[in-house]
């Protein structure tokens, strides 16, 4: 939001009144009970064999060593990596591209932005239904291929292990690119246009102006967007669950969907918890870098 400059000096208040502690502590305790305590339990569950009903047995690191030889898990790990690279990478590049295209205020640009942005409003379930209609056998994509004489390319896009993951990524991209665009436009607007103008005066081409002047100034925005994209990728669940539920033959299985099916269908609670811990460990670097940035932002202001 708009940052009104802090005109005030720090108040030299003595100790805050007790009711203020209550205002802070109540939400903090709710989060502690609702998030942190369960998270700790999640870690300790990962050292158990347990189906949720019978007695649990402690198995040490067994769950983790089993993961290493579990083909489905390794496939899910690979798919998650593909997801981060393709979903994250394309969102980043395409989002930056449309942001540059639609950054300047001119006639009609509001409509274009809205068209790209609108999908973010839809739930991932809605997105998945929209795109299932597109990819289904004899659906829109097949009809288009028929129309341009490429009938031989027709495919059961979501039913074929070699294409299903990419089809789901296309659907996820449709919803994410507009979001990344909004973040980039906000970042681009914050750049002082006079620097770019100066570069233009000095005869820099549009391409040079972008790569040498504009892009370096987006460093902070880039960092935010990369962290958002990685965290979003690791969290991705809804769209895969709704479109393919991880199938066919685990070809679209992500760590998050595999964890869910191990937990609530196989009822291997300890094993599923171990997968969750792996997701957490993968996310932790991003979370920490994000928090470090939050601290430094916070100190600056």
């Amino acid at each position: 939001m708009t940052s009104v400059p802090l005109t005030t000096r720090r108040r030299r208040v003595t100790f805050p009144p007790p009711v203020v502690f209550a205002l802070v502590l109540v939400p903090f305790l709710i989060e502690a009970i609702g998030v942190f305590w369960p998270a700790v339990q999640g870690i300790s569950l990962s050292f158990l064999h347990w189906n949720g009903f019978g007695p649990a047995t402690t198995v040490g690191f067994d769950n983790y060593t089993s993961l290493a030889t579990d083909d489905v898990f390794i496939g899910a790990l690979k798919n998650t990596a593909i997801w981060i690279v393709l979903f994250g990478g394309i969102s980043f590049i395409a989002g930056l591209g449309v942001a540059v295209l639609f950054q300047a205020e001119r006639r009609g640009v509001g409509i274009y932005r809205t068209a790209l942005f609108l999908p973010i409003v839809f739930s991932l379930v809605v997105t998945s239904l929209i795109w299932s209609a597109f990819f289904q056998p004899n659906g829109v994509l097949d009809a288009i291929l028929d129309g341009v004489g490429l009938s031989s390319w027709k495919h059961v896009w979501l039913g074929d292990p070699s294409t299903a993951l990419y089809a789901v990524i296309v659907a996820a991209l449709w919803r994410e690119i507009g979001y990344v665009m909004v973040l980039f436009i906000a970042g681009l607007k914050a750049i002082d246009p006079s620097v770019t103008e100066a570069a233009k005066m000095d005869g820099a081409s549009a391409w040079q102006r972008f790569w040498l002047v504009t892009f370096p100034q987006l460093r902070n925005v880039n960092l935010v967007i990369v962290s958002v994209l990685v965290i979003d990728s690791l969290r991705s669940f809804d769209i895969v669950y709704a479109m393919t539920a991880g199938g066919p033959f685990h070809s679209t299985e992500l760590l998050s969907t595999y964890m869910f099916s191990e937990a609530f269908q196989t009822r291997a609670l300890g094993y599923a918890s171990a997968i969750a811990v792996v997701i957490f460990v993968l996310a932790i670097a991003v979370i920490i870098s994000y928090l470090v940035r939050a601290i430094s932002d916070e100190k600056e202001s």
Binding site: P38, A39, G42, L45, L269, A276, L291
Partner: peptide, 17 residues
């Protein structure tokens, strides 16, 4: 920051608990 960190946790961590 601790509160913010809680929101960044992957939700899978707390699903079963």
């Amino acid at each position: 920051l601790v509160m913010l960190a809680g929101n960044l946790l992957p939700v899978q961590m707390i699903l079963i608990p």
